[in-house]
Design a protein around this nucleic acid. Structure first.
Lengths: 267, 267
DNA sequence: GTTTGTGAAACGCTTCACAGCG
DNA sequence: CGCTGTGAAGCGTTTCACAAAC
């Protein structure tokens, strides 16, 4: 449909276009990308929506709709050219340039993320490590030296940071976010278990590990309940009017802050 | 509306009821809970949907709809009793019993999660640490000794594990998932950057840290593009028919695998 | 007056199903 | 024939707006 080129009629100023993607599509593109990189390694050159869907854990209609938003160049009867698709997705996701990430809060989690191999190969570089504890400043992790939060603005400018990752305790998260915003950072990934408030134009994503567990806990709980209910019904059925509760929702999954891939037993 | 009690008419077998919550509501309940715990500490006893909404980063209509699914017992003109609301939410989320978590893959991330304070206070206990590397088996972290993946079934049974957290490399994730399922675990939180396939009745949630960054990167990219576009338009406007692309989507946020709290500049 | 609980409208996302193209 | 691209239908979620309750 589009993909970075305007209509280009004579007598018009043509301004390049940026695809207007549904948010749900944006969250899936990285998943397709991950699957495509895997598939590319196995030497395949072309892929159908059906196969990509299986590799990414979604259905093929979704893949086709999503890719059509990129101005997809699939070939009917054949599929999509993997290499080209990778290039297209990387381009819309802004991964053609390397993005510099600052990690604020060098505790347990900060340490782990600083060494997380999963970032480097996917267009990101942890370029700055920041902490408020003077005792930690100067510490080296890999080839990066921890700097002090008071120098954040300078660090952001010097290292050309575009994304800040907050791995502080919740009590410090809002202040860190404020400082990141003041330093010009417009994208924040917040691991602290709290809501951070930011001005318009700033983008915050939250990952709360305990919340993920709690969501799992709910479904665990419901399964236990259903088992109890079924056992009860088995023992009591055919006696007289048995009231059965908990009609199972038909709905499948949407996307989720963290991605989901739930599968639950049918009734 | 409901909340664990059937209609209870005479002459009927009454079976307890489990509330049928929309998935979107389930993902928000933990966020309300987090906010409520904070608010409870500041001595407030009652809270309006408006205030809770602000604390949880959503809007008040959503809060009221969500809570009404629990068979909400708010008081009109007053609000909700915090202590009671906490109890209700913890009950539907299955947090009244402590849940035992096994961590599989004791690398950087596994270490960090093993020591993550955010779990303990929220109903979860990391009760088992598992790795495939014999060199790591026997290592103690806190008060837990790392056991071998081959003993997973025994560990799960002994420690009464209900949730497995995968922090292995992607290459090992599917096998670990298979073993967890074989050992009877029905809830999996997967940090490995890959899709794991599980049988019906098993619940998998994925957290891919690089994907979160890529989503941020997309919006970063779009902002850069919009700036360029606007600059271009400023310089060229009023000349003749200027084609402006990128109509901004109106949509706000849904929930997300990881939660979101985006705010983006208006046009 | 304030705030809840909720039908109903609006919205976005997913899924269907098939025309169109290779 | 196989697979993409896409209108249109179907669903779930969000938002509106207001009657009911305190």
């Amino acid at each position: 449909m589009n993909q970075f080129t305007g209509p280009g009629e004579p007598g018009e100023m043509v301004v390049p276009e940026f695809p207007d993607l549904p948010e749900a599509t944006v969250t899936r593109l990285p998943e397709y990308l991950r699957a495509l990189h895997q598939l590319a390694q196995s030497g395949v050159e072309t892929i159908s929506s059906e196969t990509l869907a299986a590799a990414a854990g979604v259905n093929s209609a979704k893949v086709r709709k999503d890719l059509s938003h990129l101005g997809s160049y699939g070939t009917r009867g054949v599929g999509y050219e993997i290499a080209r698709l990778i290039r297209q997705i990387e381009q819309v996701l802004g991964l053609t340039q390397q993005r510099n990430v600052a990690l604020i809060g060098i505790g347990n989690l900060g340490h782990a993320l600083a060494g997380y191999a999963g970032f480097v190969n996917r267009g990101f570089r942890v370029s700055a490590l920041v902490d408020a504890d003077p005792a930690r400043v100067g510490e080296r992790l890999g080839d990066i030296t921890v700097t002090h939060i008071d120098d954040l603005a300078a660090t952001v400018a010097e290292k050309q940071i575009t994304i800040g990752v907050i791995t502080t305790p919740a009590s410090a998260a809002q202040e860190v976010a404020d400082r990141l915003v003041a330093a010009g950072v417009r994208s924040i990934l917040n691991f602290a278990p709290c809501v951070v408030t930011v001005p318009d134009g700033v983008d915050v994503r939250n990952v709360d590990l305990a919340i993920e567990l709690q969501i799992l806990s709910f479904h665990e709980q419901r399964r236990a309940f259903d088992r109890a209910r079924r056992a009860h019904a088995d023992g009591a059925a055919d006696s007289e009017g048995v009231t059965l509760a908990t009609p199972r929702r038909t709905g499948s999954r949407t996307h989720a802050p963290a991605r989901k891939a739930r599968k639950v037993v049918g009734p």
